[in-house]
Design a protein around this nucleic acid. Sequence first.
DNA 1: CCGCACTATTTGTATATACAAGCATATACA
DNA 2: TGTATATGCTTGTATATACAAATAGTGCGG
Lengths: 243, 243
Amino acid sequence: MNTAREPVNQGNQPRYAAIKSHIRDRIEAGDWQPHTRVPSENQLAEEFQVSRMTARRALSELTDEGVLVRSQGLGTFVAEPRPAGSLMEIRNIADEVSARGHSYSSRIQRLEETAASAAVALALGLAETAPVFHSRIVHCDNDVPIQWEERFTNPALAPQYLQQDFSVSTPNAYLSAVAPLTEVDTTVEAIAADEEIARALEITAGDACLQIWRRTMSSAGVVSFARLVHPGNRYRLGAQLRF
Amino acid sequence: MNTAREPVNQGNQPRYAAIKSHIRDRIEAGDWQPHTRVPSENQLAEEFQVSRMTARRALSELTDEGVLVRSQGLGTFVAEPRPAGSLMEIRNIADEVSARGHSYSSRIQRLEETAASAAVALALGLAETAPVFHSRIVHCDNDVPIQWEERFTNPALAPQYLQQDFSVSTPNAYLSAVAPLTEVDTTVEAIAADEEIARALEITAGDACLQIWRRTMSSAGVVSFARLVHPGNRYRLGAQLRF
DNA sequence: CCGCACTATTTGTATATACAAGCATATACA
DNA sequence: TGTATATGCTTGTATATACAAATAGTGCGG
């Protein structure tokens, strides 16, 4: 035996990664439809001139990632695509409206720099009275208000925030662009509309509304903290989960 | 050489799984706090009398699961705990209440077999007027109502539903037991309480409530379809998402 | 025609081995 | 003292091997 061996790898990318992307490519190109059987470990090992264990690693990782499904004795198959769209997905309200074939518009009520209150400072991880950007925008679907957005943004992480034209793009779009999100905390509750929200959303004070608190973080810290209020009778959040 | 080997494993549980649960136990018991360094692959291999690759597998899987963090050249460390509780997780309301250290109780308002209405038949994938089980239960936290649950259940998939004692367990607990869930559709909206809900939840008609529609499916089809209403001021749904 | 044993294929578990690469510390040298 | 170098530990990649377990198909006997 001795396990003499050719100069191991050398390349930068691990070999199993190459096999993974090959399989991914085939699936994305549509060559391998869901439920299609993919080559076995031994076949891949032969094809890519690697050991079975290396081919196996590629298949195993893709299985962990939900791309493939494996069954002992049967083989490895392309998994069904997961249904898109989660309640927690950070969707752009403008895109959502467009997707429904409606026209999106917004009404900017406030866009300023203020001193952080105690609660805002805590949420953003800043010192009290530190300067923060504050915006208040009403988003409309076919000119009917569907979301009241109050947002506090960390100036250090999104310095150009106040210069954005939010009649064209949304705060979310800008923030996603300047700092890739790493984490989002969301809380959902039902509230009764107060006078101010009722006026902005053109509903009656006391009407039931869906209120969402959302804190978005990038690797550098808390980027933004928003309170989103939807009229109860004009908005729903949907989610599908599979096991 | 020959690689003569003792009678491989024999036991039912894989050896790497034993190592995984050992590590999990230590972390859950608090012996190993976050950022604590865990034994190296070689140490674990020695301790559990397995090869390094087997010990490695345990550490790798726990890393994939977010329990550990590894760093080449440095070692393996206990990861920071993820904030628990997902909005979409199918939680048992009774467990939720217990977790808060409060007492759980329920008030069963209705428990019967009825003929499916058009909407219910559609949601459950049954024919109109087909028999369905119908229940209406109010769940309480320290005797204060926090959820009004109206549920329609497919008799074919949960035949013993009406015989359950829902003052002890919840519908969710029974349904999860008889048919493993494969899929859940959820919709969230804000509504104003009507007279009936207001009475049941001991709030005022017109108060803002969080309404959740939830359809649970197993491989055999739609198991159950529920409408859950929470008083707006007594309930929140939280979710954390990481990228 | 039905059931049973057998076989080939495929994934799953486990090991021993070799070398690469990142990191920290100790050591030697200027 | 300060900067290289070496050493030892760690995780990461890759291979060859052996056997276990699940599955589908084949062929044989009743």
